[in-house]
């Protein structure tokens, strides 16, 4: 290989890497440094997106892949108990509830059958508990999503569930939200938020 050819190859490779980096940065949410190493196929052609790790955590979002499904839990990092009215002269508004978004995404191009492919146990698809973020912190809220209405996921289909955390059980402090799926490894996903 001549030196000229080597320079051309180097330039092409550099351009491809730069293009990939630019596309990756253009994603809607900046992915935090992966906690775990990705198990996605490593043979990804240059120019495509950087594979998502199996598990990652970013501000307001935590995700983990469980078998064919990917689980996302989204919650604001900081929540205010009250806020000023949007227009001048309006009264202050107080917190009524906090929606917690749980997304179960079919991360394959094949249809997933809840009963056959997920080996679900129990009546719930997942359970969500909120505790004070302290050792042996007391539980302040829990939610169980019934699996009765969920039977299949179409290829690449996302199903979004929203649990409403009522303000009655909310007081200032740090909280830990835990979501435990009833399939896969059944390990808990945790995300933190603070109420002020």
């Amino acid at each position: 290989m001549s030196r000229r050819t080597a320079v051309v190859v180097l330039l092409v490779g550099g351009l491809a890497a730069a293009g990939g980096f630019i596309f990756y940065r253009s994603r809607a949410v900046t992915v935090a440094p992966p906690v775990e190493v990705s198990t996605q196929p490593t043979e990804v052609l240059p120019g495509g997106p950087t594979p998502l790790p199996d598990s990652f955590e970013s501000p307001g979002l935590v995700s983990r892949r469980e078998g064919p499904l990917r689980i996302y839990v989204a919650l604001p990092r900081e929540i205010s108990l009250s806020r000023h009215g949007e227009n001048s002269g309006q009264q202050d508004q107080t917190l009524a509830s906090v929606p917690i978004v749980v997304v179960l995404e079919n991360d394959t191009y094949k249809k997933v059958d809840a009963a056959g492919d997920l080996s679900l146990t129990g009546d719930a698809l997942f359970t969500l508990t909120i505790t004070r973020d302290a050792p042996d912190g007391p539980e302040v809220f829990s939610h169980s999503e019934p699996r009765a209405e969920v039977s299949t996921w179409q290829p690449a289909e996302r199903k979004t569930f929203t649990a409403s955390w009522p303000a009655a059980s909310i007081s200032p402090g740090a909280y830990l939200v835990s979501v435990r799926p009833a399939f896969g490894t059944r390990q808990t996903l945790q995300i933190r938020t603070s109420i002020r």
Binding site: V29, A74, A96, S97, V98, R158
Partner: peptide, 14 residues
């Protein structure tokens, strides 16, 4: 596809 985003808390008027 884009990652999911958290929803805003719900406030009520006093």
């Amino acid at each position: 596809r884009a990652l999911p985003k958290p929803l805003s808390p719900v406030y009520s008027q006093n």
